[in-house]
Structures are given as structure tokens and as C-alpha cells.
């Protein structure tokens, strides 16, 4: 699969990563190389093979329904560049 510069630009934008225009071709090439490497897996015949999600026989851990966490507003807001009256304050986002 070939990734062109337009796709690279779009992916960067969706990921909110600033990439200069002149860096895009190299990035696109990098993407193409990575995908090409992974596409080798397509050569393996996996008909009748159940998808494997873990190499150990582990099951999804579950928790009981009970309040065991939270109640530390100050810690939650500690890293916020701007917090007011218990809220995170961010530049206005409105539809």
C-alpha cells in the first residue's frame, strides 16, 4: 500500500501533529515502508485459524461495581495549564 503526501498530511492533522510541508514526502515514504513490512503477513494462509489475542491464556479482568476511586479534584487538575473553579479551562470550543 502506497501512502502519498496528501494522506500523510491528513493523518498528521487527525493526530494533531504539526508536520512541515517539506517533511511530508519523507513521512509518506516511511509510512509506505512500514505498511509494506507488515503486509508480508498477508502471505501467511490463516484460513481456519482462530484469531489470537494474547500469547498467554489470559482472560479479560473484571471489576465489581463499587465506588473505589475518585474524590481527588486537586490531583486531577494539578497538571492543567489553566483550571478555574474546579474545571479545566480551555480556549472556547463551541458548535
Amino acid at each position: 500500500m502506497d501512502i502519498d503526501t496528501d494522506t500523510a498530511r491528513r493523518v498528521a492533522k487527525l493526530a494533531r501533529i504539526k508536520v512541515e510541508e517539506d517533511e511530508l514526502p519523507a513521512l509518506a515514504q516511511g509510512f509506505t515502508a512500514i505498511l509494506g513490512f507488515i503486509e508480508q503477513l498477508n502471505e501467511v494462509d490463516v484460513t481456519d485459524v482462530e484469531p489470537m489475542t494474547s500469547v498467554t491464556p489470559m482472560r479479560l479482568k473484571r471489576r465489581k461495581d463499587g465506588v473505589t476511586d475518585g474524590g481527588y479534584q486537586a490531583s486531577i487538575l494539578k497538571n492543567a495549564p489553566d483550571a478555574r473553579e474546579g474545571f479545566f479551562a480551555v480556549p472556547k470550543v463551541v458548535e
Binding site: 471489576r63 461495581d65 463499587g66 465506588v67 473505589t68 476511586d69 475518585g70 474524590g71 481527588y72 479534584q73 486531577i76 487538575l77 473553579e85 474546579g86 474545571f87 479545566f88
Partner: peptide, 20 residues
């Protein structure tokens, strides 16, 4: 009582950012 992936409370109308 608690959230889908954490033990924080789901109660409506609490102090902001306290059920986190």
C-alpha cells in the same frame, strides 16, 4: 455505581472533576 472502566462514581451533580 461506578464507571465502565474505573472505580469512580457515576453520581450526577457532584463537584466538578471530583468523580474522576
Amino acid at each position: 455505581e461506578a464507571k465502565l472502566f474505573s472505580g469512580a462514581s457515576t453520581r450526577f451533580g457532584a463537584e466538578p472533576n471530583s468523580n474522576v
